[in-house]
Design a protein around this nucleic acid. Structure first.
Lengths: 247, 247
DNA sequence: CGCGACCTTGAAGAACGTCAATGGTCGTGG
DNA sequence: CCACGACCATTGACGTTCTTCAAGGTCGCG
């Protein structure tokens, strides 16, 4: 959807600058990181449950997802990632993966060796703090999904997911005017929301019927942002964005 | 239940030593942290949703829980904490709380100012890494609860919680011989598992009926560890403990 | 043109929630 | 030591949400 920017690591610079202010030296150090670019087809894993990765994955284009499979084809998608995110930053400190990471759409990623990231955060404690903070926001999103799965109905959860992804995409300039490219199938939404695909479809019909959204040909349009937030009881505090909240 | 050790911060030293090896200097620096000791009655909040805390809370005795309230008395407990844990470590990097923290039983905590923790991690990057790792394990537990709430039945989820807490308590020497002090009421378990208290009771009867556990007068006894793990599909990898796994 | 992946819909059943009533336990104060 | 009250556990009956199974239908692409 988006052309990869001139320098792939600019994506990371921009992300971290939305969190902390970087010195010229820090910016240069990030841009000097070695990165191997890879394009992934939809559905492809990049790290698997049980792996011991030696590199981190920066999303440059497309959507990725963390997920965990348990017995008999049961799967839980744990979170979605968009350009600028580093979904497996945790592997810097947790040797063995307890879940997997895959592409939800055709995606481009940059692979950065742990070794170089470790050197970076040793030299620049400020960057270490920013990356730590990233993983803490990740955890905050997990908590919010837990609240949803424990306490909210299918319709509310789905509305909440739409709000969350719109705000996140908007914050990095990948969504505007309440329209988003939405590459996630209903089957994958079922995995993410802890529902059956049949019920996902029904919840979707419900939101459409209320005139809150349309979703067609991989494009999500939010017709009534206020009402959607209300259904979702959406409060973006947990995303810990710096300034503005939402659209 | 446990007497507070001679020096309260030894609890933190011990916890971090189970993760990383500390130098004499680092150990001393931790022990030199200022700590205000407080005892909390059951149910009391120590930090609330929306607060901007200026200190972190180290659990010395008792159980604590993070939780989030949404409309109309709906509550989700997000995780449980036991002695040695620092439940709100995230507040070091995320200014505003997106959930609350309360005592699940009469508890003793040590409050440590952010300021001093920040000085500590600036001086000792090794400790910063250990604390970062702590927050990452926290996130791994969130993910596991998500999988449970999205994919597992009430019985499986409850069995999983018993396994998880037993392993965690065992790891810090607070449980043995498959017996644990279990201060959590069925109502609070309902909040934690995303169920009604009535259904919690029924799932409990089910586990009792299968001869897997007893739970009486705040004491949980696991009668058949292997079978309980099997029901729960419990795999302790996500706790990222160093050596041994379980009992 | 045909295949595979995805979406949609209906019907029946399982899992879980709600409401309501009862009994048990424990700490507190008389 | 006893009595009280608050909180907690338990159980039954019934309603709702969501799942499962099954059968088309649509769309894009080779």
């Amino acid at each position: 959807m988006n052309p990869v920017p001139l320098h792939p690591l600019d994506m990371l610079v921009r992300k971290l600058e939305s969190i902390a202010s970087l010195s010229h030296e820090e910016r240069q150090a990030i841009q000097g990181l070695p990165a191997k670019i890879r394009t992934l087809p939809r559905g492809q894993d990049i790290v698997r449950d049980g792996d011991q990765p030696s590199q981190c994955c920066l999303v440059l284009d497309g959507w990725m997802a963390r997920y965990k499979d348990i017995s008999e084809g049961r799967r839980q998608i744990l979170s979605f990632y968009i350009p600028g995110d580093v979904p497996d930053l945790q592997s810097l400190h947790l040797a063995v993966m307890d879940h997997s990471l895959c592409a939800m759409s055709v995606s481009t990623v940059a692979l950065i060796p742990h070794e170089n990231l470790r050197m970076l955060i040793t030299r620049f404690p400020n960057l270490a703090a920013a990356l730590w903070r990233e993983t803490l926001i990740d955890a905050a999103v997990f908590r919010t999904w837990m609240v949803g799965m424990g306490q909210r109905s299918a319709r509310e959860r789905m509305a909440h997911l739409f709000c969350e992804m719109y705000v996140k995409l908007h914050a990095v300039g990948l969504a505007d005017h309440h329209r988003v490219d939405w590459p996630v199938t209903q089957i994958d939404m079922a995995y993410a929301l802890g529902l059956s695909n049949v019920h996902v479809n029904r919840a979707l019909q419900d939101l459409r019927g209320r005139g809150l959204i349309t979703l067609d040909k991989r494009t999500l349009t939010i017709l009534n942002w206020g009402a959607l937030c209300e259904v979702a009881e959406f409060d973006p505090v947990y995303l810990h964005l710096e300034k503005r909240a939402a659209a």
